[in-house]
Design a protein around this nucleic acid. Structure first.
Length: 681
DNA sequence: CTTTCATTAAACATTG
DNA sequence: GCAATGTTTAATGAAA
């Protein structure tokens, strides 16, 4: 009312803001945009690469290091390339410089987050898009494997060196180091497997049942149909499936190396905290796809997607006698439509995420090596491009490192080698990809993906990557609150949780904090409880559940299917989300996902669960909304950590665990699906 | 095309 | 007066 005048006045401002919409979009997407990533990164990579090549003599250590750098360089360039567009398929080593098709399109591709399928269609001509897809896929495999191989070799070498040197060192220390290396190896391995797995999955997702009938010579992957999926994935290490061999052939032989490494140290129990990426059970993700190997031998002359007489489009393996036929097939079967676009987006996301992960692992590796060599870990040229998109229009709040960390909160552990800094600017990745602009939205709501579950899994990821989490503010706030023993937090504590858990929220504090406050006030599910020392916020589960749409987006049956079918921890949540986004409503099956290593940090109170709506002792649920001054005079709480314990405000339930009544250990994650209690059954 | 929801921005009010 | 908190309103964009 009265505000009217005010708003009227400001009109101009807000509308300018509107720009906001786009602005934020840019901030997110644009920033992530790979714009920075692609360009900046590329530049960086090149520079460093160039600079590196001048070397006279080096000590073994240096040489090793150098090689390592180079390997990383290659990998990075490759990835960047993937992300930014095309280049000549065959030889990526000489790539970028020469070929550089530089389709303007690539620019657009660099900030996929900002593009809707439609936009992409408009921007890209079918041939362009297809070319991109083709090359992306093929190159990715090729390069990645190459990279892995190099890494492998490096590590191996390293180990050998170590072994020798180790003779003089305390056995113990050596053992540890080797162990660490071994783990690193495993990680690399897993990373690779995950990657392959992702690709595979992507293919599966997009496949057309009708086509899955041809003789699957070497490409079982593509031949699977939805129904096969389960078993395929389920049968980890299914007998008779020497998944590795193909890889080995390629000379990649991860297993071999790993094994070898093992022989050195032979550490029986290697399950330390170290890797957050590791699969919970010792079993390596095995479901390796073997066929991929073949993909990188294809002759450059032809389409990367065409080999062995068949179409290698993910999920398709149609036989084509010749290139011409294949082209035709491509244009008809894989024309530029929603599905293809979605696949493309997914692929981009996969690449981006892999890059991030790769960078992370690489840094760790670097640090390890540096340490073992007693050399200072030099600033690697790798993840340099952080500068949060200089040009990006963040209206004002361009982060001052200062306000980033409100206080001495736990800072990400990654520390050592990786400063919290995002590997690359902004928002690429899952989050952004989800919807283009501001991430969030239904991803958590509609798909009922349990935020806690995903958080648990990608905890590390979000913590270090400057990626916007795909959850709504409300979900996050709730999660923050529920994670505490008391299920209550002060505003400031909520802020802290955000900054602690998400690298993304270490920027633009004014913005998201405002959003947090806004959400707290806006949603009835957040109840403010007056306290002696101030006020704390609690969550009214009932309200929270109430506000969520009862029905899920996908077909229940399908979902159910998938759920029963796949329970592969390997599939990371983000990817799931992406897939879901791309038209496959399944996944986000929470329970299924293994708690993941990171899980330990999160209580997994899992959230979307509607089932056990705990009676939450708090103020009834709604009536006298807010402001119900509790009594007691405990006041210890303070902002510091200690607080929580004290306040047992609620006389009733002795809440050890947050959720007294239902007594249910927050196990729920299982039926997560659609908890609201209907579908699932 | 309309509705609903989430986000972002901003004005204001309250409180310490 | 200032900063942190809370509330509200409005504009947007995306998804349903």
């Amino acid at each position: 009312m009265m505000v009217e005048s005010a708003s009227e006045t400001i009109r101009s401002a807000p509308s300018g803001q509107n720009g906001v919409g786009s602005i934020s979009g840019q901030a997110d997407g644009g920033g992530g945009g790979a714009g920075a990533a692609g360009a900046g990164g590329g530049g960086t990579g090149r520079d460093s690469a160039a600079g590196a090549d001048s070397n006279g003599e080096m000590s073994p250590a240096e040489l090793l290091h150098f090689q390592q750098q180079q390997a990383l360089q290659v990998a990075r360039q490759f990835l960047l390339q993937q992300a930014s567009g095309l280049s000549s398929p065959g030889n990526n080593d000489s790539k970028q410089s020469a070929s550089a098709v530089q389709v303007p399109v690539s620019v657009a591709m660099m900030s996929p987050q900002m593009l809707t399928p439609q936009q992409m269609q408009q921007i890209l001509s079918p041939p362009q898009l297809q070319a991109l897809l083709q090359q992306q896929q093929a190159l990715m495999l090729q390069q990645l494997q190459e990279y892995y191989k190099k890494q492998q070799e490096q590590l191996h070498l390293q180990l050998l060196t170590q072994q020798q040197a180790g003779k003089q060192q305390p056995k113990e220390a050596l053992g540890n180091k080797q162990l660490a290396f071994q783990q690193q190896l495993l990680q690399m391995q897993q990373l690779q497997q995950q990657h392959l797995l992702n690709l595979q999955r992507q293919g599966l997702v997009s496949l057309q049942p009708s086509q899955a009938s041809g003789p699957l010579q070497t490409l079982p992957q593509a031949a699977v149909c939805p129904t096969d999926l389960p078993q395929l994935w389920k049968g980890e290490g299914a007998p008779g499936q020497p998944a590795e061999d193909s890889v080995k052939q390629e000379g990649l032989d991860l297993t071999g190396s790993a094994t070898t490494a093992t022989s050195f140290a032979a550490p029986p129990k290697v399950s330390p905290p170290l890797s957050h990426h590791t699969l919970p059970n010792g079993q390596p993700t095995v479901l390796t796809p073997r066929r991929d190997s073949s993909s990188h031998e294809e002759t450059p002359g032809s389409h990367p997607l065409y080999g062995h007489g068949e179409c290698k489009w993910p999920g398709c393996e149609t036989l084509c006698e010749d290139l011409g036929q294949f082209i035709k097939h491509l244009n008809t079967e894989h024309a530029l439509d929603d599905r293809s676009t979605a696949q493309c987006r997914v692929q981009m996301q996969v690449v981006q995420q892999l890059e991030i992960q790769l960078a992370k692992e690489s840094e760790r590796l670097q640090a390890m090596m540096a340490h073992l060599h007693m050399r200072p870990s030099e600033p690697k040229p790798f993840s340099q491009p952080l500068n949060p998109v200089p040009g990006s229009s963040f209206s004002k709040v361009t982060v001052s490192a200062a306000d980033s960390f409100p206080d001495g909160l736990v800072h990400p552990p990654t520390s050592a080698a990786a400063p919290v800094t995002p590997l690359r600017p902004p928002g690429l990745s899952s989050a952004s990809l989800h919807s283009g602009g501001p991430a969030r939205r239904r991803s958590s709501d509609k798909f009922c993906s349990p935020i806690s579950s995903e958080l648990a899994q990608n905890h590390e990821f979000y913590k270090n990557a400057d990626v916007r989490p795909p959850f709504t503010y409300a979900s996050l706030i709730r999660q923050a609150i529920l994670e505490t023993p008391d299920r209550q937090l002060t505003l400031n504590e909520i802020y802290n949780w955000f900054t602690r858990m998400f690298a993304y929220f270490r920027r633009n504090t004014a913005t998201w904090k405002n959003a947090v406050r806004h959400n707290l006030s806006l949603h009835k599910c957040f109840v403010r409880v007056e306290n002696v020392k101030g006020a704390v916020w609690t969550v009214d589960e009932r309200e929270y559940q109430k506000r969520r749409p009862p029905k899920m987006t996908g077909s229940p049956t399908l979902v159910k299917n998938m759920i029963s079918g796949l329970s592969y921890g390997a599939l990371n949540a983000s990817y799931q989300a992406a897939l879901a986004e791309s038209s496959f409503p399944l996944l986000s099956s929470p329970g299924v996902l293994n708690p993941g290593s990171a899980g330990s940090l999160l209580p997994l109170s899992h959230d979307e669960v509607g089932a056990p709506v705990e009676p939450l002792p708090s103020n009834g649920s709604s009536s006298p909304p807010r402001l119900s001054p509790p009594q007691y005079s405990h006041q210890v709480q303070v902002k510091e950590e200690p607080a929580e314990a004290e306040e047992d405000r609620r006389p009733g339930p002795p809440l050890g665990p947050p959720n007294p009544s239902t007594a249910g250990p927050p196990e729920d994650r299982d039926l997560e699906e659609e908890l609201p209690g209907e579908e699932l059954s």
